[in-house]
Structure formats: structure tokens, C-alpha cells
Nucleic acid binder design. Structure first.
Lengths: 199, 199
DNA sequence: CCATAGTTTCAGTATCTACTGAAACTATAG
DNA sequence: CTATAGTTTCAGTAGATACTGAAACTATGG
């Protein structure tokens, strides 16, 4: 019996059925989706949102809310809200099919664009507040440091220098970042072109 | 009464006491530490570790475990383990003071170096596995796609194209990244110099 | 070998975030 | 207006992570 199965495989190497192919495609997609979700989770994007996006990206087809629910085993509320959030970010789009009331969603196809959107959002929400805090700290240390002991003076100076170091780093990083992001929207960007030329 | 207070301030503008200065420094440092901890949390570095590092960075002084515990109100176990983890990462160092058995810790002072260490670690833990998964998916779709319907063939091809798009993006991003990181260790790096020249 | 400083482990707990399932609400076609 | 598709809200809960406090363990100086 075992032999007959394996011999069958040998006889019909190219005859994998349509069902097999579909299952294989499905499995490959799920592998990608799962990994993408895990990565998203450690990047401050919640797992489900990352998975929905991965699904739309990898299938390269418009799917409706029920498709997403079924494929990822999530509730209607979750699917609906997550899809809306992804639309708000602009990394997926709503799509109508004429003659159908039902709405479909599809992912942007350009990875550079997707990442530039995500990255800009993260910069705004995470880098900018830190820069603001650094400035605030600098203001707090800018006033009234006359008359203290030498030791205190040097402590204040040391902290100020550290704040400056951090500020400089973030400002420069932001500049690089904006080049990367701004350029990405116009296809292969300036930074990339420069780098590929240079190395 | 109110007037007398304000006039006193005018008369002695430079006479803020040593205690005031210390409190002010302390507050500014805490502000930074808190914000840094929040940022770390959304970046996959846990809040306490980020705070410990922020403390050592911003005070610019070697502190011992008990200092850290007291300043951040955390338990001995937590402090000890987090300090060890930071040492393992290499963004803080142990330091001995002669004649004392007690160990002190101090932060690297170069922000570029700190970030290149953190970033490399994140790349290794998060980007690399994704690249690996993409390759795995490609292998899964590389075999046995003969004999299926035209629709199935096109689905498989579409998914393959998406995998390729993602792979290309990650490979290029990794290259940029390594330049950034590798160069950072040698002070202002190649990427930065290129960019500052170009823009 | 003892005393002490320091480190690691761990069970229990607190905290946080995301998710479900249901209900309420809104929009549209007929 | 009614039926239906679709969206939003929310209370309760599940699951994950990180933290504490204590105990066990390790290393070192004397």
C-alpha cells in the first residue's frame, strides 16, 4: 500500500491536482502571514493588523471583510476596525465592484510606499515627542545654575552635554529618514540610488 | 505678602540654593528617563531596561545597583537582571572602583554607537527571520505548479511577485542599514557623510 | 572556612493590550 | 418604510509580559 502511493507519485510527477496546488499556495501564504504578524508585534503594530495587511499584500487580490474574518479566524468587530485603521493609514484601499454593494480591500503593491507610510507614522508618534522632551529638559537646565558648588555645576554640564549628543543624533537621523521616506514615494529613492552607486 | 515674594525673587535672581539646583537637575533627568522608557516600550525594548539605560546615559556617571534601584523604584532582582542584559548588549559597561568591591555601571557616551548596537540586534532578531521566511515561501511555491488551471497559475504567480517585491525591499534596506550601523562605529559614518554632502 | 557582597531563579501577581460576541447604530436599495 | 449590508461601540475576558519579594545560589576577601 505504501509502495503504491509512492509509485503513483513517481508516475505522475507533474499531475499534482488543483486542490494540492491551492493548498500549497494557501500554506505558503499562511507562513508569510504568521511571520509578518510576529514581526509587526515587536514593532508596535498589533499582530492582527499586521496579519490582515500581510494577507491582502500576499494574495494580491481584493478581499472583503468576511474573507478576512474567515481566513484569519477573527471576529467581525476586530476585522472591521482593523481594516478601517489600515485604510486610515493608507496602506490598503477600499474597492467597489460594480453591481455589488459589498466592499473589497486591497493592499498597496509598492513595498517602498508601504514602508514609508508606516515609518513616517512611527517617526511622528515616537521620535518627535522625544525630541520635544529633550528640548524641554534643556530649558529646565537652562535657568538658575549660578551659585552652586563646582560639583553640582559639573553634574549639570554633564547632563546638558548628554542631551546635546542625543539631540544631534536624532536631528541627523530624522534628516536621513525623511530623505528615505520622501524619496521612496517616487520609486527607488535618492538615498538608495546614492548608496547603490557608492558601494 | 504676594508682593514680597515676587520682590524677593527680583532681588536675588542668582541665589537659587544648591538644593534647588539639585532638584531641578533631578527633575529634568526624570523627565528624560520617563520619555525614554515610553519610547523603548513601543520599540520592543522593555520600559525598565530603557529607563535604566536612560538614567546611566543622562547622569553621565557610574552608578551601582542600589543607586539604580533607589532612583527608579525597582526591585533588586529586576535591577540586577536588567543591568546584566544591558551589559550583554554592550550599551553599558561594568566599572570597578579600586578599594571597593561594589560594581558600578556606566553608559556608552556615543549615541551613534549605542544605536548601532541596538539596531543590529533588532535586525538580527526581526529582519533576518522574515527574510528567511520569504525564502521558505518561495521554495514552497517553486515546486509542482504544472497542470493547474489558468486562474490558479495566475494566483501563484501573483503571490510569487509579491514575495519578490518584499525580498528586494528587505535586501536593499539591510544594505543601507549595515552601512549606517557599520559606519556609525567609526564616528560619523559613510551614509551620513554622503547625505550631508548631497543635500 | 566563614561572612558578606552580589547574582540568579522562581512562584505568584499586577498590568496592559487586544479580542470576542453582542448589541446598537447607520446607510442604502427597493 | 422595511429589509439588509455594513460599522461602531463596549463590557467582559484572555493572554502576554514584566515585576516583586524571597529564597537559593555563587564568588571572594579575610
Amino acid at each position: 500500500m505504501i509502495r503504491s502511493i509512492s509509485s503513483k507519485r513517481q508516475v505522475e510527477p507533474a499531475a499534482s491536482s488543483g486542490v494540492d496546488i491551492e493548498r500549497q499556495l494557501h500554506e505558503a501564504q499562511d507562513t508569510f502571514i504568521r511571520r509578518w504578524g510576529e514581526m509587526g508585534a515587536t514593532w508596535g503594530i498589533n499582530r492582527t493588523m499586521a496579519e490582515i495587511h500581510a494577507l491582502l499584500y500576499i494574495t494580491a487580490q481584493p478581499l472583503c471583510t468576511d474573507d478576512v474574518m474567515a481566513r484569519l479566524h477573527i471576529s467581525r468587530g476586530n476585522a472591521s476596525m482593523s481594516l478601517r485603521a489600515l485604510c486610515d493609514w493608507g496602506i490598503i484601499h477600499r474597492m467597489h465592484r460594480r453591481g455589488q454593494r459589498r466592499e473589497y480591500f486591497e493592499s498597496l503593491s509598492d513595498v517602498w510606499e508601504i514602508f514609508s507610510i508606516i515609518a513616517s507614522e512611527r517617526k511622528r508618534r515616537e521620535m518627535d515627542p522625544v525630541l520635544e522632551t529633550i528640548k524641554q529638559c534643556q530649558r529646565m537646565l537652562g535657568e538658575g545654575q549660578i551659585g552652586q558648588s563646582a560639583a553640582q555645576r559639573s553634574d549639570v554640564l554633564a547632563t546638558r552635554r548628554r542631551l546635546e549628543g542625543m539631540e544631534e543624533f536624532m536631528v541627523v537621523t530624522n534628516k536621513i529618514f525623511q530623505q528615505f521616506v520622501g524619496g521612496a514615494k517616487a520609486g527607488l529613492n535618492k538615498v538608495v540610488r546614492l548608496l547603490l552607486k557608492a558601494f
